[in-house]
Amino acid sequence: MSTPGRFEILLPYYGDVPLMQDAVRSVLAQDGDDWRLTVVDDGQEPGVPQWFADLADDRVRYFRNEQNLGVTGNFNHCVSLAESEYLVLMGCDDIMHPNYLQVVRAALQRDPEATMVQPGVQVIGSDGLPYDTLGDRTKRKLYAPKGPDRALLGGQELALSLLRGNWLYFPSICWRTDAVKRFGFRADLGVIQDLALVIDLLVDGATLAITPEVCFSYRRHAESESSAKAFTGQRFTEAKRFFLETADRLDAFGWPTAAKASRLHLSSRLHALTLLPGAAKHAGRPGVGAMLRHSLGSR
C-alpha cells in the first residue's frame, strides 16, 4: 500500500457500480506520484470488494463500512481517513479529467495560502454528455463572481456571493485537509452540509482560489429531479433552518450584508418555484404547498 502523497482523493461510494468504476478509472489516469485514492463503500453491492482486489493498484485503498453511515456520516468518515495535506471529496459518479491535479497544483503554486481550490467544471448528464440546466446557467450568469478568471476570494464578500446563490461545485473542490478536519460536516444537515462547511471556513478566515481550466465533470441525473422525494419540501425545511441560523450568526460576527443575503435566501426560494410543476405531478397538494411556503418565505 502506498504512503499518502500531497493529495488524498476520497470517494464516498453508494449506488451505481459502473459509474463508480468510471470515477475510479478517471482518478487512476492522473499524473504524478503525489496522490492516493481512498474509497469508502457505504453500500452492499455484490462484487465491489472483489473488483478492487482485482484492481491490485497500490495507489488505491478500499474500505467497506460495517453499517450504513448515510451521506453526511460517510463524508465525515472519509475525512477522518485523510492523511495528506489536501483532500478532494469526489462524487462516486463524477469524472476527473486527466488534467485535474495539474490544474490544482498550478492553482496552489499561484496561491499557496488558499484553503480551497475551485477549478473549471463541465456538467454532464446520466449519459455522460454535456447537460446544461437552468440552475447551472443561473450559477454562471448571476451568482458566480465577475472579474478575473483567476482570483483569491474570501471574507464577507465571498460569503455574500455564496449565500445569494451557491455557485461552487462541491465534489470538484480541493480542500486543505486540516481545515476540513477542524470543522467537519454538520451531522444535522443532509443536503446543504457542503455550504455550511464553506461558511464555517470563511468565518475562520479561509480563502478560495478559483481557476478557469475545465478539469472535472460533475454529473446531474435528470431522473432525480422527477422523484417524489425531491418535492416533499424536506430539503427546503433544512435549507431555511440553515439560512436563518446563519443569518443570525453572521449578524453577530459583523457581516451584516452576508447575513441579509442569508436571511433572504432568494436563490433557494426561486428554486422552489421552479419545482412547482414537478411537485404538482409527483407529490400533489402537499408538495405544491411545501414549494409555495418556501418560495414565499413562510415559516
Rank of each mutant, 00 (worst) to 15 (best):
266 L>M: 09
68 N>F: 08
135 G>S: 04
68 N>S: 14
26 S>I: 08
175 W>S: 00
182 R>T: 12
192 I>D: 06
64 R>E: 07
111 D>E: 14
194 D>P: 00
11 L>E: 01
82 A>F: 10
243 F>Q: 02
174 C>V: 14
247 A>G: 12
219 R>I: 00
178 D>H: 13
161 S>H: 11
140 R>Q: 11
4 P>K: 04
149 D>S: 14
213 E>V: 11
211 T>L: 09
70 G>M: 05
158 L>P: 11
46 P>M: 07
229 K>R: 14
38 T>Y: 02
245 E>Q: 13
213 E>K: 06
166 N>R: 04
21 Q>M: 13
146 K>M: 12
239 A>V: 03
198 V>H: 01
101 L>S: 03
139 K>H: 09
57 D>W: 08
107 A>K: 05
255 W>E: 02
45 E>S: 15
40 V>R: 12
18 P>S: 07
221 H>S: 13
249 R>T: 09
280 A>P: 07
289 G>M: 13
57 D>H: 11
256 P>N: 08
40 V>S: 12
135 G>I: 00
25 R>E: 15
152 L>A: 10
74 N>Y: 02
4 P>V: 05
98 P>K: 06
112 P>G: 05
108 L>G: 00
194 D>A: 07
37 L>I: 03
114 A>V: 12
125 G>D: 02
236 F>V: 04
146 K>R: 15
171 P>F: 08
5 G>P: 05
151 A>G: 03
129 L>N: 08
110 R>F: 07
19 L>F: 10
185 F>D: 01
20 M>F: 08
297 G>L: 06
149 D>K: 12
291 M>P: 02
145 P>E: 09
184 G>E: 02
186 R>L: 10
20 M>I: 03
65 N>R: 15
176 R>W: 11
267 S>L: 06
177 T>M: 04
78 C>P: 00
252 A>M: 02
22 D>L: 07
109 Q>A: 15
208 L>D: 02
45 E>H: 11
159 A>M: 13
185 F>T: 02
99 N>P: 00
95 I>E: 05
57 D>S: 11
203 V>L: 12
137 R>F: 07
114 A>H: 10
282 H>A: 15
52 F>E: 08
142 L>D: 10
238 E>S: 05
150 R>V: 14
295 S>H: 09
227 S>H: 10
93 D>E: 13
250 L>W: 00
290 A>E: 08
247 A>P: 00
178 D>V: 12
55 L>E: 11
4 P>F: 11
